[in-house]
Design a protein around this nucleic acid. Sequence first.
DNA 1: ACCTGAACACCGTTCAAGT
DNA 2: ACCTGAACACCGTTCAAGT
Lengths: 168, 168
Amino acid sequence: MRDREPVTTERIVATAVALLDEGGAHGLTMRRLAGRLAVTATALYWHVKTKDDVLDLAVDRIFGDVPLPAAGADWRDDARGLLREWRLAMLRHPWAPGLIGRPVVGPNVLARTEFLQSALARGGYAGRRLTVITRVLANYVIGSALTEATGRAAPDDDLFEAGLDAIL
Amino acid sequence: MRDREPVTTERIVATAVALLDEGGAHGLTMRRLAGRLAVTATALYWHVKTKDDVLDLAVDRIFGDVPLPAAGADWRDDARGLLREWRLAMLRHPWAPGLIGRPVVGPNVLARTEFLQSALARGGYAGRRLTVITRVLANYVIGSALTEATGRAAPDDDLFEAGLDAIL
DNA sequence: ACCTGAACACCGTTCAAGT
DNA sequence: ACCTGAACACCGTTCAAGT
């Protein structure tokens, strides 16, 4: 009852991210989420259709922290900088890579993917070659984050960078 | 009560895979699993420590279907053949990529990773370069399977193959 | 428009008890 | 050794009702 800011979708998502950071996928519960917002669990369903919605929003939310710089001089630096930050954002929220498999693509993820693609296009890639290289890079980042975030492989910035060297 | 074969860990895992195939991560329930085996939910806990154990076993189980050929003449064919089958196994069980993020590595996954690494070693990779290329390839496969299995990207064998061309 | 309360149909897991 | 039954502390979600 300390909590008197109105419940908004934004506050729901922010709190969901906090809960996920604290307890992993296991830590997010509609009831717990509601408790944090000083509201009944059932109240959430006025703002949000389902728990899966909350998960989708939470995943997209953390990609909002990946800086989307203005296109710089060097397209390669632009692309690699984005991929670097992309990976780091997921390592900061280790529950994210496993959830990235959800079918929904949020606006933040979309914007970053498009930035990557346009940087590569400036590098001379086009058509099918552009599609291939974009996918290879994006999938490499996702796979890396997934294995590193769960401790299956120790996070290693240099190794990740060396992998980029091998591709781009 | 039709079911009179004894409950074993193997049967538990096989049934778990079936349940996951039918209903995704959402479809696997200790109670449902037990029902299929004509046994009480609590009986499972004699064979298995926790539901997470079942998930780990199920993930490793499907990698047992990835053929581990004898090392052939062409190391590149060996490596790419394995990666191809690896991806296909995950696409046959779309719940798997998202669960691959669990910390536990089972023996089947381990054996396949080692086969990949040894094929690449035959190709002349060694030391740090070997580590890097192994990771790049494994992470590319995992990332591809993750995005394709959930319909975020349409599965496309040729595109996947073209990605391999760009790396190896 | 926004929230509560009660209710429904579930969960995973523990533990004493049976055979 | 292997399984049951009862129990505990939870879940997500719907829906009528309140303000």
